[in-house]
Structure formats: structure tokens, C-alpha cells
Design a protein around this nucleic acid. Sequence first.
DNA 1: CCTGATGCGTC
DNA 2: GTCGGAC
DNA 3: GTCCGACGACGCATCAGG
Length: 915
Amino acid sequence: MIEVRYERGVYLPEQDLWLDPWDAKPFAFISHAHSDHIAPHEEIILSERTSRLLQHRMPGHRTEHVLPFGEKGTVDGLDLMLLPAGHIFGSAQCFLFAGDETLLYTGDFKLRPGKSAERAQWRHADTLIMETTFGLPRYRFPPTEQVIDQIVAFCRETIEAAQVPVLLGYSLGKAQEILCSLDGAGLTPMLHGSVYRMTRIYEQFGQSFCNYVRYNANEVAGKVLICPPSANRSQMLEKIPHRRVAMISGWAVDPNAIYRYGVDAAFPLSDHADYDDLIRYVGLVRPRRVFTLHGFAAELASDLRMRGVEAWALSEENQMELDLGGRDIALRCPDGAARRPYRSPPQSEFLAFANIGEAIAATPAKLEKIRLLADYLRGLTSEQLPIATLYFTARAFAQSDLRTLQVGWAIIFRALQAATHIDDTELHRIASAHGDAGRSAFEILDGRTAPQLFSIRDSRELFENLHRARGPNAKAKLLQNRLSILSPREGEYVVKILTGDLRIGLREGLVEEAIAKAFDVPLEEVREANMLSGDIGQTALLASRKELHRAELSLFRPIKCMLATPQPTAEAVWERFAGATDTDRTAALSMRATVYLEDKFDGIRAQLHRAAQRVEIFSRDLRRITSQFPELADQARNFQEELIIDGEIIAFQEDRRLTFFDLQRRLGRTSDGTDLFARAAADVPVAFVIFDLLWLNGQSLVKTPLRERRRHLDGLRLPSQFQIARVIPAHSAAEIEQTFQQARQRLNEGLMIKDPESFYLPGTRGMFWFKLKKELATLDVVVVAAELGHGKRNNVLSDYTFAVRDEVTGDFLPIGKAYSGLTDAEIAELTEHFKQNTIADHGRYRTVKPDVVLEVAFNSIQPSTRHASGLALRFPRIKAIRRDKNVDSIDTLQYARELASQGASYRPVLAEARK
DNA sequence: CCTGATGCGTC
DNA sequence: GTCGGAC
DNA sequence: GTCCGACGACGCATCAGG
């Protein structure tokens, strides 16, 4: 008989033909266009409709043999015929003639007539290779009409309860079947983007559906949303506050289906044959032998044998058994080294590092943290010192090193799961118990790994390899391999570094102090060297060799920028200057009583270095952004001097109001193709507003007063597109307030207030520069959802989604999130309240009874797709809990929209900067 | 091909 | 960017 | 005063998956 093999797909060696192989093959039959059946094969046999669908799902060149249903054809010397499989649109079975023998391969199939798939046909065959997803007697589906009635009833009841029904089904096939089922029920389906696209293709083939609309976050009310299963728990659905989700799948007959899928309901409408139809099909085809495939293949084969049919399962079970064996060994011997009493176990270097981290976390006293770290650093080799020091700033790469890892929460958890084979529910329990990736990693790895030694050098290689690996899958695999041989503590610290968050109450400031203490060098020198090199590891190394003086300010090595301290009012600012008593600076100041005011521009902070041969522009955290602004770099060559200027790059055009969001559109673009930037520059023209001068013709001006630096600045000849921010001297709080108002009328963010006698203090937010911003307005909103926080806010509901009222429908539409602004006590109180007023608990996230009114402040409001209101707030913060207000008195969507449109309708008044 | 999720950097 | 809290 | 941690929205790039 025809030889049949299985290796990630059915293979017929005599015909050299693959049937639905997983991987790319030279010659294959493709039964249908679901993506688990698609790979870049060279030459394929398929139906016409599958061909069309494939063009959309996997464009590209290949040789296609398109055969009509029911007609015998010859391809590469093989005689065969395609028969409709009834699974989805275009799905085919392959009927093969080999001498006087025949073989029927079903692919995915079903016998029940579907509304959006061709009806299945069959022929007698000697060999039947059959898909058996639902090969157990418990999978018997109720009559289709009955299931459809249930689905329609579910939708109607949900809508009547002012909620949104969401039906989950694959975007190709199932979704259209659902769509047909809703026909005539008086419901309006709304289709997720991927469903929409597939449905349009169906229509090209002449299939017609009832009226439907494409997904639009603002119009879900009253509609029936149809989404692929992957959309469940997605942000798209989470945004819909009152939704009831139903899974449409054959698996719905499992009693625990709603828990497994995390849905509110499940209906057994399937694209596959149920148990009864599988048995029936064998009777129809009357084969001499059967091979079963997928799902309960072994069970059905055994079942058929009991019924007197020769039947065998095609599968890869051996592979899985091997995997389980490996894990078992790891479990039994989690820490081999510790159980050998004869040799003292070699200490893992990375574990020593992690243990110091734990000790630092354990003490709240800063001086104690510094002492612990200093002692540790002193004992390291010159190879280890720069690396371990860097790790204590939770970085894998130095600040001046522009590499990134592209590894985040999602990849970390995937790797943890794969490394430990941990149970899904257990993983989620642990993850939600901590809300801290590092702590979760410890618990997940604990007892589930076979630790090996991990040196500091190994760790460096790990991070470099992670950086080099391309794509989330490759990165996850690399990480998984390492995690599986780390002790839990080491794994925890690897994760902490990956997330850039050590959470041990220690950051760069204290690391600098520890370096100073460890090597007995002045703290100021350490800070300065770190600032100049942007590499704390190298700074530690220089400190250990007493060579810190080697680092000095120079062109093309960016320095951290000076920051401003926020102030709420003009009076508060003035107090800072006039109220101080005892320094020379304030004495001099109160005599002259002068401060410098500048408009605060809403762009991105930039530091430009220019010499005769070269120009570079750096961002606030010292990244090179020269290539983002080629026209500025070009023009900067026209300066006459060698200089470093500090300023703000803003989106700017004479006759157009451009905002920060316009500017953002040309940030972060990568430079493949020069015309990309030509277009970007034309789209969003920019200007460089200069407000400081740090270097001029070979001399650092960092330690010259701002007054002097400004004087030098005034002497510069400026290329076009460069402007100097105007300075307005002020002598009282009233003048500051007045100038602030003027700045706002010029549509600038607010005001900068600077001490004219101050030096340029890189990287510090001192008492020499202040900023005055003030909120745009406040909104009274109601909290509709609350979320558990992270780290120390792990056990409180600290994150609130709040909504305005739609004055037409009465719905509460989310407009933003915030916790910032509340005290710990208030958060604790609200946590208690929300726990008792929860409508639906989704683990870390819960929808709550809308009865807490907050007053939120923000700096601007603009259209957005992030929230259902269609609006979002910039810099939202909570001003007060309005216990005096009830839900009925909160602000309306209408009012929020007015605020948004006001901001946009101002006549442009241009930045009054001197050219 | 398009959509959505994720990571990162800007504010 | 925002803010509150701890030292 | 200063640092630290726990958070917001947006846009671009990249990748996975339909």
C-alpha cells in the first residue's frame, strides 16, 4: 500500500509529496489558508479560493497548481483530484490515484453544511488520512441551528443590558460563519480589522453578508463585535467597559471552557467534524486503513480499531515524552553543588553580585547601602568592576552605549515559562502576586532550574547576545536557555537588569557615592567623571586607578543637561530667590533683584556640538540624534565658532501652528533611504531655540555665570532655523506672573526662571533654574476601573482609569489614567473602597462601581484612540478626591471636546525669539 | 499585505 | 513629563 | 534638598500572526 510517513506534516515518499507540512518544502498540497498550514513552499497544489486567500496572507512568488473541485488532474506525473472539505471557504481534500490504489487526505474538514464554506464531498478510498481534532465521544455538537439561536439570544440579551457582546472566532472562516448566522437577526456586527479584511475577500468571490461595519472604538455600543480569539484580553477589548465575551468554538462543549478561555460564555459552533461525523465519515469512505491526525488522534485510532477498522495515529509524541524526562531530572536535583559535602562549592560570581543587591534592598539606610556596595566594589577585579558597577544602575549597557536589548516584560515571561515548564495558572498566580518581574522570576525559577556557575563575564556575554539576537523569538530562546541554568536569585537579578529596574532603593546617585567611598576619591570628581563619560563602569575603573582627572569636558562628548525644578506659582518662584538669606548669590540678587525669564518651549531638549569639521546633536539622555535633524546639522556648519549650545528643537513654521506631536512624528525614524528624511523635514520643519552656551572656541563656559554665557550668546551670528530664546529680566512675582501669561498667549508651555549668576550644573535639578507650567484646566471624572500597582504598590489598587459622561447616552467613557497626586493614605482608602465596589474582577484589573469622583488636572487634551472617549490627557494627575460631588455632576464628553478644540483653534502667535 | 502588541524614547 | 515619600 | 519609585500619553520601529 501507499507508504505514509509523518514528520511535521504528512509525507508520501513514493510520490515525494507533502500534505500540509509545517515547514517549507519543495512540493506540497495545501488544504486551506489557515496560517498554521502556510509556509513558503516552492511548488504547491491548492484550490482556487485558497490560492486567492493565500495571496493576501502570504504574498510572494511560488509555483501554484490550482485545481478545480471534482475534476481529475495531473501534476508532475501525479493523478489527483480536489474535493471540498467543508472546513472553511476554499478548503480542499486531496484524493490521490496511485496505480490501482487510492488515498484520501481530508485536511481540516466537517460534514455539516456551513453557510460560508462549500459542502464536503467524498469518494471511496483505500487509505484515509483524517483530521481528528474532536476524536472523543464527549465532543458531540448540538444541532447548528440550536447553537445559532443561542448565540443570537446571547447578543440580544447583552445589548438589552446596555453591554457589548463580543464573539471570538478565527478571522478566516469562523468569523464569516458567525456573520452569516447573525443574518436576519436584526443585529449589526462590527468587525475587528483582521476579520474585516478576510470578509472583504469573501465578498470578492460573490459571498454576501448582512450589513456590518468596521471596528471603531467610539461606536461599539449596540453592535456585536466579532474578533479573533487573540483579541481576548487585548487592550482593544479591555477598553470596552461593559462587554460580555463569548468564545465560538467546538471546545465549548468542555464544561470548563469559559474558565479556560477567560470568557463569559462559549458556544459549540465548529469548523471541524465532531465525534459522530468522524465515525460517520469512515463509514462513508470505507477505507482499508485509516491514519488519524491532530487532536485525539490516538484515542480515535484505538476507537476505530475496536470497531474493526485498521487505524493508526500519526504524531510526534516521543518528542514530548523526552522533554518531560529532562524536566523531571532538573526538579529532583535543583542544586547539585550544595549537596556535595566534600568540596566547598565554587561561588558563582553573579550570585555574589545578586546577594549584595539583596543586602542593599534589606536596609533602608542610605549610608548603609553605600557601605555595603563600596565594600563589594573594592573586592572586584578590574574586569569585573566596570560591569558589576554598571549593573547596580540596572543597566546592561552604559548610558553612552547606545545599544538596547529590546527585551521586555512579554519576552521575559515567555522565557521563564519555557525554561521552567511551569503550569499556566501557576505562572499567572505568581505574576499577579508580585507585579514585579524580578520577584516573580525568583519564585518561578525556584526549584525548577538546574543551576550552573555564572560568572560576571558570562553575564556580559548574555546581554550582548540578547542585543545581537534578532526578533522576540530568538531573544526569548536565548534567555530561556540561560534562565534554565541559573539559580533563582541570579535569574531575578538578570530580569531586574533587563527591565532596567533593580528596586533596591539604589540608583546612580548612591552608586557614585559608593565609588567615592570604595576608592577614597572625592565624590565631586566621581560625579563629574561619570557625567562626562556617561559610563559609570568606566568611572569606577578610573576611580580605582585614581585617574578620574582624565575625564574632562570636550567637544563631541555630550554632558548631561541642567534641569529645572517645577514651581506651582510665580510667588513660589520669587520666594526662592528673594526669600533665601545667607549666600553671596542671593545677597547680590536681592540687591539687584533680577531674575531671567524665558519662554518654555514645547519641543525636545537638544545639545549641539559644532566644530569646523563636524556637527553632532544630542538628546536629553545623551543619544546622538544628529541624523534625525539633518537640516539643522547642515546649517550648524554655518556658525563661525567652535561651540556647544543647549536649547530646544521645536516644530516650527511661520504660518502654521505646530505642536510637540508634530515634532514627534519625525523622531525615532531610522535612516534607510535619504528621501525619508527629506520628506520628514518638509513635513515638519523645525527650529533650534538656543538658551545656553557651554563651550566657545576651546573654552568651557560651564563655570561662568549665566549672565556671561548669555552675553557670549548674543555675540553669535546665527544660521537660519536657529534662534535665541529671548530673556526678559524680572524684579517681582507680579512681573513673573505677567510674563507667564504672555508666554501662554504665545502658545508656549510656560516660563523658565533662571538665576543670572548661576553656573551650568549638569545633570542636577537645583535651585537655580525653575519652571512654571500650571495646568490647562481640570475635569471632574469618575473612576470606572482600578488596577493593582507594581513594586511597593503591588498590593494596592493604585492605578485608576477614569471617565467622563456621554451626555447623549449617559455612558461613562474613559478618558485617562492616573494615580499621581494621591497620598499613600488616600490610595489605601480607595483600595478598600474599590475592593468592596467591584463589578468585575479580572485579576490585576477590575471594573468598579462608578461612584468615586476625582478632579484631575492636565496640561493639554487631544484626540486619541487610547480611550473610548476618543480623547486623552497630557500629564494627567489627580488634584483631589471630590467627596462632595456625585457621579451625576461629573464633566461631560461635550465639555472635554470643547476644551480640546479650544486648544486647537487659537490663532498662531509665533515664538517671540530673536532671529 | 495589514493589524495589533511590544519596546523604546520623547515629553 | 507628573507626583509623594524617605532620608 | 535630594534622590528614589511609581506612574501618564504619544509616535516610530519591529515583529507575530491573521
